[in-house]
Amino acid sequence: MAKTQGQPAIKKSAKRGMSFNSRTYFYDLPETPTKVISDLTNTKPAIATSVGHGLKTGDAVWVESIENDAINGYYLVSVSNEDSFALMTLDGEDIGTVTDAKFTTVKRYSFCDATSVKIAAIKTKAIDATTICDEGAVTELEKEPGTISLSGLWVPDKEVQDFLEEMAEELETIFFTLKPKGSKYMRGYQVKITSLDWDGKSGDKWQFSIELQINGRSRKLDMTTGAK
């Protein structure tokens, strides 16, 4: 059917983005690591050798070393075989030789209570770096810790909430992961809880808000192939 002259064209709407639906977890503080890493390669990412490790791709582990405490922290793993796995974002080119590394798996809490998540993974601020020898103003960028904000519905006495309250009081570093539905990537962040608030009204549902400060580099894992 021909379009009548002067008749406005019909535009098709295009829906962008994707609905907010994610698998979200918090991870508990580890016990003393007992599983030995016999070798840690100087590659990016570093490959750990641990015979019969029992891990699967997407697991979170805590790694610890006395020789080089710079590697201490939470990592997502990409499993190569039953005796080796990659520690995502650990740059083995910078760590030198580490012979005493150990790891442990950590307790995972599912967290489906959030109705909104805001992640400011990278934040910078401008600082005045002008010296007396500069003819004009000199500005440099300085990196600041990123932040994560969560808000949603709060159901009292859930185990994960007891854990979050305890970690907030003790100012401990914990681990948070997020995998949006439809995304192949799982992202992990070492965080500290900077605020945890409840808000309720009579006859209404409890609301909560949690503010997290990101501690160190984020972890990123391709769940379909393993990050390279």
Rank of each mutant, 00 (worst) to 15 (best):
154 W>A: 01
112 C>E: 04
110 S>A: 02
111 F>S: 01
210 I>W: 08
109 Y>S: 06
124 T>V: 08
164 L>P: 02
195 S>F: 10
170 E>D: 09
207 Q>D: 00
124 T>L: 04
89 T>W: 00
132 I>H: 10
137 A>E: 04
111 F>P: 07
184 K>V: 13
137 A>R: 11
214 I>Y: 03
116 S>W: 14
138 V>C: 07
142 E>A: 06
123 K>H: 12
129 A>P: 08
119 I>G: 09
158 K>D: 02
155 V>Q: 01
105 T>D: 01
107 K>F: 12
176 F>I: 15
204 D>H: 02
214 I>D: 01
173 T>E: 08
218 S>Q: 15
117 V>D: 13
95 I>C: 00
126 A>I: 00
152 G>A: 09
112 C>V: 06
126 A>V: 03
141 L>I: 11
174 I>D: 02
188 G>D: 13
87 L>N: 04
84 S>G: 04
182 G>L: 07
177 T>Y: 00
107 K>I: 05
176 F>W: 15
135 E>F: 11
129 A>S: 06
104 T>F: 08
84 S>V: 02
163 F>W: 12
118 K>Q: 14
191 V>R: 02
132 I>W: 13
150 L>I: 00
138 V>S: 07
140 E>A: 09
215 N>A: 06
101 A>C: 05
202 S>K: 12
141 L>C: 11
185 Y>L: 05
211 E>V: 11
168 A>I: 02
215 N>G: 00
168 A>F: 13
96 G>P: 04
179 K>G: 10
146 G>Y: 07
91 D>E: 07
136 G>A: 12
107 K>L: 10
194 T>N: 06
174 I>K: 03
98 V>W: 01
182 G>R: 08
182 G>N: 13
115 T>Y: 03
190 Q>K: 14
145 P>K: 15
